[in-house]
Simulated assay, not measured.
Amino acid sequence: MENKIEQLKEIINESNKITFFTGAGISVASGIPDFRSIGGLYDEISKKGLSPEYLLSTEYFQNDPDGFINFCHEYLLFADKKPNIVHDWIAELENEGKSLGVITQNIDGLHTDAGSEEVDELHGTLNRFYCIECDQDYSKSEVIEKNLRHCENCGGPIRPDIVLYGEMLNQSTIFSALNKIREADTLVVLGSSLVVQPAAGLISNFEGKNLVIINLDSTPYDHDADLVIHEDMVKVIEALKNEA
């Protein structure tokens, strides 16, 4: 892996418009299991005979808003989860002016927690909640600390600002993500299988110099990449920082 770390270091040093694209794998080191991995949300709920897709759908929220928010409190709100070294590294490069920002498939909000400001959250974020009746905003910390299920202003149901099954991705977020990819000289993919559409299809719009993929498993875009590292990304970034 040493040669690949050297190559990654060279690419990062020579790049001035890096865009990051992240998936569930980046948050595993923060204690958030991959959605479909053993021990992940899908696995845990399926064992109880429930459908994760239904519980995360607009249909379920409309049919049983109380059940939906109770589900969010039990399975989605990770009050104790913090950004890891990879989130921090991405935020540092943005702060240094070398990165255009990050595009993420994750809803955990850890990129913004790490200090990244230019974040396109394709599937929304659990860091924001809102009342569907009066649009009152709530932070994740408020919802957790006050154990909120209903709006303090009007009593209406509150929900996280995430994209549920049956909803469209936010178009302005998609356009922002496309601009980041098209303007980038380097695109670094971290912890994504690049199979979930339409998010993963954004990668095909990259026309810059270096495509880097860091993921434990192979992806459909490996053959197009200039550098592929199938290793634990925490170890990769630790090694990279030690080389700096």
Results as ranks from 00 to 15, higher is better:
47 K>V: 06
30 S>R: 03
68 F>K: 03
18 I>Y: 02
34 D>R: 09
28 V>I: 15
41 L>P: 09
21 F>V: 02
31 G>Q: 02
58 T>W: 07
69 I>T: 07
26 I>E: 03
66 D>E: 14
45 I>P: 10
48 K>T: 15
61 F>V: 07
46 S>V: 01
23 G>I: 00
52 P>Q: 10
69 I>C: 03
53 E>T: 13
45 I>Y: 00
20 F>G: 04
57 S>F: 06
67 G>E: 05
35 F>W: 13
59 E>Q: 13
17 K>S: 02
46 S>Q: 13
32 I>D: 04
67 G>I: 14
54 Y>P: 14
16 N>K: 04
57 S>T: 15
38 I>T: 12
45 I>H: 09
24 A>L: 09
42 Y>H: 08
37 S>N: 11
39 G>I: 04
67 G>N: 12
47 K>Q: 12
28 V>Q: 00
66 D>L: 02
44 E>M: 04
51 S>Q: 08
53 E>H: 05
63 N>E: 15
39 G>D: 10
54 Y>C: 11
41 L>N: 09
62 Q>G: 15
48 K>G: 12
43 D>C: 06
54 Y>Q: 06
69 I>W: 00
61 F>L: 05
25 G>H: 09
18 I>T: 01
66 D>A: 08
61 F>M: 06
35 F>M: 03
38 I>D: 13
39 G>V: 11
64 D>T: 11
57 S>L: 06
24 A>Q: 08
22 T>M: 09
20 F>K: 02
39 G>A: 00
41 L>C: 10
22 T>H: 13
51 S>L: 11
50 L>H: 00
63 N>D: 14
50 L>G: 10
38 I>H: 10
30 S>L: 13
43 D>G: 09
36 R>V: 14
19 T>K: 07
48 K>M: 15
18 I>C: 02
16 N>I: 09
21 F>T: 04
44 E>A: 13
17 K>N: 03
24 A>M: 02
27 S>F: 07
60 Y>W: 11
67 G>R: 04
34 D>Q: 03
33 P>A: 05
47 K>W: 08
35 F>C: 02
52 P>V: 06
32 I>N: 06
16 N>G: 13
69 I>P: 02
41 L>S: 09
32 I>Y: 09
62 Q>R: 14
19 T>M: 08
46 S>C: 03
28 V>E: 07
